[in-house]
Structures are given as C-alpha cells and as structure tokens.
Write a protein that binds this DNA or RNA. Structure first.
Lengths: 150, 150
DNA sequence: TAAAATTGAAAATCAAAGAAAGTCAAACAA
DNA sequence: TTGTTTGACTTTCTTTGATTTTCAATTTTA
C-alpha cells in the first residue's frame, strides 16, 4: 500500500473531500510528488473512473488543467450507478430516468434531453457496441446529476 | 482560468453585456492587458465565433476599430442544427452549448448534462468515430430542444 | 487644383516558441 | 503475471513577434 499511486489517490480524495470536485495542474501535482506527469494519468485512469463514480474534464496548453468530479457518496446513487453495469439498453435507461424523475432528481425536460442524446437513433452503432456506449455515457450523466457539490 | 485569453474574453463579454455590441481599438485593448495585439485576434478568432453567435466588423488604418456584435437570436436552434455537419468535436460542441446557454435556450444544468453525455470520456471510441457519433447525438438533442420550446 | 505619391496609423496574418496535458510502450516491482 | 513507474514523443491550446495589408491624411507633382 505504500506505492505512489495510492498516495496520490488518497491525496486527491482528501483534497476534494468537502467540495466534491477538484481542479488540479497535472505538472504541479507531479512535481509535488516527485513523479513523472504521466503517473498522474495512470492514477486517474485506474482510480478515478466512471465506474467508481468520478468524471473528468481537462484542457491542454497554457492555463491547462484537470478537473475531477465525484458523485455524492450515498447508497442510492452508488446503487444506481452499479446497476447500470457494462451495458445499458434503451429500455432500462428509460426505467432509470423515470425513477430519477419520480425522485425529483431530474426535471421532465432533462429527461427528454438525456433520452434524445442516448436513444438508439442517436447512438448509431451496431447493437452490442451501442449498449456499451450508452452504459458509459449514462454513467457520465449520472455522475453529473449527482455531483458531490450540489 | 489563469490565462490572458480567458480574461480578455470575460472583459469583452462584460463590457458588451447590456448594449449587445462593443467597439474597441485593438491596440488599446492589447495595451490595457499588456499583451501582443495579435493576442486580441486570437481571442476573437477562438471565442467570438459564429458558433457562439457573434459577428465582427473592423477597419484598418487611422481611426481603425474592431466591432463585435451579438447576433439576434432568431430560430437559433434551427440554424445550429443546419451548421452541425457529419462530425462535431468536443470543443465545437462546447461553443454551441455556451451560446445556447447565453440565449437562454437551455439552463446551466442542461448544459452540464449534455456535456456529460457527449464528452470524450463518455463516448469512448476512436477519435473519428467519436466526432461522428457526437454530431449525430447532438443533432438529436437539438431536435428535442426545438420540439420542447416550440 | 486634381490626381498621384508618401506617410503613418491601425488591423490582419502567419509561423515559431512556449505551456500544458495525453499516449504508449518499455522497464520495473509485487 | 499483474500492476506500477518512467520517459520519449504527440497533440492541443496559448503567446509573441515579424511582416503584410488597408485606410486616411498629408504632401507632391503635373
């Protein structure tokens, strides 16, 4: 447990604890821990994944950054995320959306937008890939909906 | 947000907020922000684009100027739908989302949801396919928006 | 005096340099 | 073997500066 990756992971978790999101500079962080910048990517790729309830944004170039968002850590959200799994059919997605609507987590128009973005026609792919893609994208949406900072 | 380009962008947006347009002297502005004049062009070219709903005029020589206009939003959504081609990069999508937000066609949280659904992380595909897929899905969202606020 | 050339004041362009994050594969460790 | 660390290389975004183009005002010239 004494490897750098775990330490960096913990550091990030600690830092974002209350705010639910964090914006870092990859290079500074690498500097701080005296490691290769790509080490940060490794940590992000292996620990801060959609499956674990994290989403990321980043920008390169001058003024660049990496931003990590975390889902709220309550059981319901975790369960919903977990229930999505590796593949997600259109119908299952609609069920989940309905439930999110009932629980007032999303509005009607937000439901419609998500449906429009991730319906079968929108994701023009062979079926098996499509459900995988939808699972992934939907997780990203879930994390956005249940961001720790709201 | 520590880079000059973003700061200049915000300055211009603030200044033109009420009137919907602004006339500046490129050199004075560059002076004010202590940057190269061409930096102003960079900001204009990357931020005050057609996608974001701005048009520009300018004149060189003595008494020269640059004028930026926020375009009148008249069936914006339909126009954007036309302009999205076969491929749509993440960045261009963000430009469009920003504009849809500015014109109050979608809320901030709707912007975030769409971004989450169609960001690079969500659409885990090879780059070319990804932009194709995004174009498709985004158009589906635009159509939904047109239906929604008719 | 009217057209033509000159000058100086802008803005536009373009390419190079700089800044930051991403990728990938090889080496290393458990 | 699996997971971690490192570094070389790539891509993206920003900043800077040299050069070019355009315009208005002024000065020459016919």
């Amino acid at each position: 447990m004494a490897n750098i990756s775990d330490i960096i992971e913990q550091f990030i978790l600690d830092t974002m604890e209350d705010s639910g999101s964090i914006e870092i500079s990859r290079n500074s962080l690498a500097d701080y821990f005296n490691c290769a910048p790509s080490q940060i990517n490794y940590v992000l790729d292996t620990r801060f994944t959609l499956d674990r309830g994290f989403s990321k944004e980043s920008k390169r170039g001058g003024g660049g950054f990496i931003k990590i968002n975390r889902m709220k850590e309550d059981d319901t959200t975790a369960m919903i995320l977990e229930s999505v799994g590796e593949e997600l059919s259109y119908n299952r997605m609609m069920q989940i959306l309905k439930r999110l609507g009932q629980e007032k987590i999303i509005s009607k128009s937000e439901q419609n937008i998500i449906r429009a973005a991730l319906c079968d026609e929108a994701l023009s792919l062979p079926l098996l890939m499509r459900d995988k893609m939808r699972a992934n994208a939907f997780k990203s949406v879930l994390i956005e909906l249940m961001r720790g900072d709201k």
